[in-house]
């Protein structure tokens, strides 16, 4: 107890200041490498090549037909791919968890591994599968939006399946047995017991998928369809193909606004409900 007497009161003040100081370094990293660049993107979008503040770039970009097509494509592809992922991810999760077969564990892991792959891998293999000279010889299908959507469904299905599967493992088997013993047919059990239980997890996974498909770049780039321009593609082509920074920045600002809005919505809805499993951590 002699040591105790030496240090009265002093540590109390230290502990009040230091948590803020300790949190500073990672935030500085983020501020320097993400926030500051984003702010400059915003500034650049209202500055022309001679360094004059003007809304001219905004006016011309927003008026261009390619911008409208890009927004339309982006939203359509993201929406359709997300819907597909929700349907497919739920189906996979329900079969794997509730109608298991020998090897279903391996199948689940195989679907999961897709998460560790780069998304362009899917696009690349699609060129062989669906390309004009490939397995199925589907002609121009490869260069259509539908091919991009199918590729995104393939890649993003695990993002829905994983939380759904996690939610299903929390569903006690007894509840299904009881429902069946009360006379509910499988379809009814699915609709009235299983789906309500996993709905929050599926919704969270779906929201994350929507966010990621809005931002998807690799798949669209690799499929290389000239008609399927999305917002990220537009940023890329304006930024490093034609070196028109101000225009690229305008598109980027629009895209960030869209994504961040969706992201804030996502956090607001799912953080509060505490729908786990749909977290970023796979």
């Amino acid at each position: 107890m002699t040591t105790a007497a030496l240090a009265v009161e002093r540590p109390a003040r230290a502990t009040r200041v230091s948590p803020l100081l300790w949190a500073l370094p990672p935030l500085v990293v983020l501020a320097g490498f993400l926030i500051y660049p984003l702010v400059l993107v915003g500034v650049q979008s209202v500055t022309n090549e001679d360094g004059v503040r003007t809304l001219e770039t905004w006016r011309s970009v927003l008026a261009a037909g390619e911008f409208h097509r890009a927004i339309g494509n982006t939203v359509l592809i993201a929406g359709a791919a997300t819907a597909g992922c929700i349907v497919l991810g739920t189906f996979f999760a329900v079969v794997l968890a509730l109608v298991p077969f020998p090897g279903s564990g391996a199948a689940a892991r195989a679907i999961d591994t897709v998460l560790a792959f780069p998304s362009f891998l899917i696009a690349l293999s699609f060129t062989f599968l669906y390309g004009a000279a490939g397995v199925l010889q589907l002609g121009d299908f490869l260069y259509s939006r539908w091919c991009v959507i199918l590729a995104e469904i393939t890649f993003y299905t695990p993002f829905v399946m994983r939380p759904a599967l996690a939610a299903l493992t929390h569903l006690p088997a007894e509840r299904l047995a009881v429902a069946a013993s009360l006379g509910a047919r499988p379809g009814q059990v699915l609709r009235r017991v299983v789906l309500p239980e996993i709905a929050p997890a599926v919704a969270a996974g779906g929201a994350l998928t929507l966010l990621l498909t809005l931002n998807e770049f690799g798949i669209v780039l690799f499929i290389g369809a000239k008609d399927v321009i999305t917002l990220p593609m537009l940023v890329h082509s304006k930024g490093v193909v034609t070196f028109d920074y101000p225009s690229a920045c305008v598109v980027a600002v629009v895209e960030v606004a869209l994504s961040v809005l969706l992201y804030l919505l996502y956090r607001r809805i799912f953080r509060r409900k505490g729908a786990r499993g749909a977290d970023l951590v796979p």
Partner: peptide, 24 residues
């Protein structure tokens, strides 16, 4: 936890503000 008010004494010495690792 730190008391909002009052004192904690060990062997007669006030340790209210002493961190856990110095209390023994």
């Amino acid at each position: 936890v730190r008391p909002t008010s009052g004192r904690v004494l060990l062997a007669g010495q006030d340790v209210t503000g002493v961190p856990p690792h110095k209390r023994g």
